[in-house]
Amino acid sequence: MLEEQKYYGFTNDEIFGSIMQNKRFCKAIIQAALPDVNVVSIESVDAQKELGTKSDKRSKSIRLDIAVKDKVGNLYDVEMQVNNNHDIGPRMRYYQSSMDRDTLDRGEPYTSLSRTYLIFLCAFDPFGRGKLRYSFHLYDDEDKSIQLKNNAENIIINSKGSGNGDTDLLNLQKLMNDDKIEATGVFKEIQTKIQEYNDDPKRRNLMRTAELRMKEEIAVATRQEARRKDQNTVIAFVTFFKRTQPKISEAEVYSAIKDSVGPDFSLSDGEIREIIHQNLK
């Protein structure tokens, strides 16, 4: 009996990029995320567009999943977020600022900034409130009728949420969750196209590679997070000893740390000693 093949859905990086480069599919997905916006004809779709290195080589670059421009100059960035790294607020802030820097040249007035829509399609609920769609604008803290109209809107679609969304938004949710879409229409076409990709051996190889790449990125991020936590642990030890035992030696701090941390501690002995040396001064 043949082993059942794994189904690669809309959240797979390769599939997501391929689907979104179809302008009609792309428009339907953006429109579903922005039910109150009239999304006009799509002019261009750029997959994996790199931003952040245009004028400052020292700045952190980012790669937009899908950068879209419509016929009237509005810009859309659609990002697929499969894993919750608990950084969605700062991440959206940086993506938004990178989009703005990339579209405004030196000497141009700020009023020349394009209207932007930053859309994060999340396979998790970043706020734990159960909403299907989160929409963010800038308002005065005391009087919500006062809006800072900066022509930027941040949208999060939570595929695990619930709510009385319109049909297209609910179909987008089904698409993200690999749930069957019954009704005919563009979202049914998208799901049919995804099945065609799954049935194509060459496409499956690309999807498998994308999945492995994602797993490696997750592993790297996990290791980096572990190192940050362990660095903070060492600094906390040093800070405590500086306050309680001002005359303690570096060797004594090192010994105390080694006695306290477990075998899974991610920092080497040399790295621990260097952090102690830098912070015990």
Rank of each mutant, 00 (worst) to 15 (best):
L175K: 07
D199Q: 11
D199L: 05
L175S: 03
N177D: 07
D168S: 15
G185E: 14
M176E: 05
K193N: 04
L172S: 06
D200M: 01
L172E: 02
V186C: 10
I190S: 03
R203A: 05
G185H: 12
T192K: 10
F187N: 02
N205T: 08
K193W: 02
M207E: 00
T209I: 13
Q191K: 03
R204H: 01
I181Q: 05
K193F: 08
Q195R: 09
T209H: 01
K202E: 11
K188Q: 14
D199C: 08
Q173Y: 12
D168L: 09
F187C: 03
K174C: 12
K180Y: 13
K180N: 12
I194T: 04
D179H: 14
G185L: 13
A183H: 13
Y197V: 03
E211V: 03
L172F: 10
N205S: 11
A183R: 12
I190P: 06
L172Q: 01
L170F: 11
L206P: 02
M176R: 04
K193I: 01
T184M: 13
D178A: 11
N205I: 11
E182F: 14
K193G: 00
L175W: 03
I181F: 11
I181Y: 06
I194Y: 03
L172M: 09
P201L: 07
L206H: 07
L175N: 00
A210R: 02
T167I: 15
F187V: 07
Y197R: 03
F187G: 05
N177I: 10
K202C: 10
Q191I: 04
K202V: 08
T167A: 15
L206V: 06
L175A: 08
N177P: 06
I194R: 00
N177L: 14
V186G: 01
Q195E: 10
R203I: 04
V186L: 12
L170A: 05
K202N: 13
E196K: 09
M176G: 06
F187H: 06
M176F: 09
L212G: 05
